[in-house]
Design a protein around this nucleic acid. Structure first.
Lengths: 346, 346
DNA sequence: TTGTATGCGTTATCAT
DNA sequence: ATGATAACGCATACAA
């Protein structure tokens, strides 16, 4: 009797195992194997066993392309991000990858560059590639576009509030986070607090500024528009914005940056102008990027578990693909007090 | 005559156009369309025109899954990175995405976590997904594994020197870069230069340390092993390593970090210990991460165009997929002198 | 519960 | 140069 020869010298080189081969080895029909693989129908325990034995005997793995063609799942989920190397969402991407991998899913990352047209193109691409579901990280596409897509695919949206069938959203609590930052400074005795906002056509930027205003109001402090300068969520924008604020001659003992990246730039601008942080001016950021624990001084900031958000998003998509409704989640921000803030000098 | 009705009310909802429909509309056979799409054979100009007209009339786009099944290209290239959110390779990923997109290719990013087993698994996965080519960013897999894979697919390796058919490698000049950093400090009058290395089982770490040693030797300066401490290429590792060096009591007027991330941690450790940068101690990094221009003080470092490397890698893969041999490239490092270094005090 | 037959959209192998 | 036809590997409607 011929032996199994897997050696390189074999005349019949080991071909890639197919579902058909599994069926044959297990003595059942291909459809039965398919059913077991997808849990599409009940199968008798003995065939079940035979098949799964055959599967790992042959080391069989279904071909995603064939599945896709036949109308099955592609085992891939599209992820629309803005920049693949975004320091902010990076951890979220990692979170997604980690959980998707455990479920044999593959993420298809693509970037929209904060451009609505481009974002739509990327979303279309993802659909063409027949992803099973889509995760959208913020972005500029209209809610309606997202809802339309949700007609075909389950979709998870991060950074918005969106309701609808096949839609699950995970919103970021910008407003509360920003209030916490402001409250922290006020409690340290600061009364004149500068604010470097993000681009004001950006939802996160708007909500964060709103939180700052509200907290001032709550604490009976005046809101002075001249203390607010607009940045672009980048280091360089924060740097420039702070220089503008400095040149305006306004007096302030603390600054809030709408995100950590800008806080870095602000820190440099302050330093160049001869101000020490936190001795002369306190500084608070937002996001708690991994790097923020290692700046000099370590940055006080508002933390959101971005990795966690990624995990939640991936789990949600997985559940929806499984016809389950994900439980609502709320991401709460918390203040991480480090050394860039101190009590105001009297 | 019936009009084209694309409205939602249409009884025949616009189906996704297929190659067959294009063929029919153009009055040719499916094979001809396929040939035009892939440039597989010569086709008469008139049919050519008819087909391309039909194509954009129907807005036809070939189905990647079907292509894959039929043995064609999947229009996707796998990218094995270590962490999807690596600050270092982030820009490279962006570079790849940018050029791949222009050629209708999609990158499939996957992470190996600096773990050889995991890396092999991911590479296998990429092959299962039938990517047309693979780009490997450093990693721990053996050269042999890579060469084996190259039997099936073109492969581009970044951070190694690898020769072989279907293999193209883009090496990083760690050695020279490190020498430049060392030379810079020596020229500023520093004689006792601390060195925080990467993990010593890491090629980049070894080569960079080698460059430091060599430059010292060249300049007739003694190499003192006690001035070298091992880090892990992370902020926290740099922080701890510097604390160890500080505790050892060794005297030094400058420090080289094997990468920027560690330099950040080192900067903090120095600051905590009461040393000013650059007044008391000069600091040089390696990589020139986007952030390094915004640290306080801005970091002197060795720049490599990581984005450019990504672009080159993607272009190389594309050329190989096109049966062309990519021209050899050399990535040269250059020193970016900023404000974390100054002349040694006598 | 299980098997058979058909189709998914494309490329490749033959013909012509 | 062009066309018919057979795969590719799987899921599903239908039959039993």
């Amino acid at each position: 009797m011929p032996t199994l020869d897997q050696s390189p010298k074999s005349l019949t080189p080991p071909k890639k195992p197919t579902l058909g081969m599994v069926a044959e080895l297990a003595g059942v029909s291909p459809s039965t194997v398919s059913r077991i693989l997808n849990g599409t129908a009940k199968v008798s325990p003995n065939k079940m066993a035979a098949v799964s034995e055959a599967i790992d005997m042959l080391q069989f793995r279904p071909d995603p392309a064939a599945r896709s063609l036949a109308g099955g799942r592609t085992m891939s989920v599209g992820v629309l991000t803005q920049f693949i190397d975004s320091p902010y969402y990076g951890e979220a991407l990692r979170g997604m990858e980690d959980v998707l991998r455990q479920h044999q899913y593959v993420p298809l990352f693509t970037s929209g560059h904060w451009n609505e047209v481009e974002e739509r193109e990327r979303l279309t691409l993802l659909q063409e590639r027949k992803v099973d579901g889509i995760i959208v990280l913020t972005g500029r596409v209209s809610d309606q576009t997202l809802l339309d897509i949700a007609q075909d695919l389950p979709i998870v949206v991060i950074g918005r509030k969106l309701q609808g069938p096949q839609v699950f959203s995970i919103d970021i609590d910008n407003f509360e986070g920003s209030r916490m930052a402001t409250r922290h400074l006020i409690s340290l005795g600061h009364r004149s607090i500068g604010y470097v906002s993000g681009p004001m056509d950006h939802k996160d930027a708007i909500e964060r500024l709103e939180g700052y205003k509200r907290e001032l109001q709550e604490k009976q402090l005046p809101f002075d528009p001249a203390l607010v300068v607009e940045g672009d969520f980048q280091e360089s924008g924060g740097f420039r914005a702070m220089n503008r604020l400095l040149q305006s001659g306004k007096i302030f003992s603390a600054v809030i940056a709408a995100n950590d990246q800008m806080a870095y730039g602000i820190r440099l601008a302050l330093s160049n102008a001869g101000f020490r942080v936190p001795d002369d001016i306190s500084l608070v950021g937002f996001d708690d990027l991994p790097h923020s624990a290692f700046t000099v001084p370590p940055l006080t900031t508002v933390k959101q578990s971005v990795y966690e958000i990624g995990v939640l998003a991936a789990n949600a998509i997985l559940q929806m693909l499984n016809k389950e409704a994900p439980a609502p989640v709320s991401i709460s921000a918390k203040l991480v007090a480090r050394e860039s803030t101190r009590v105001a000098r009297v």
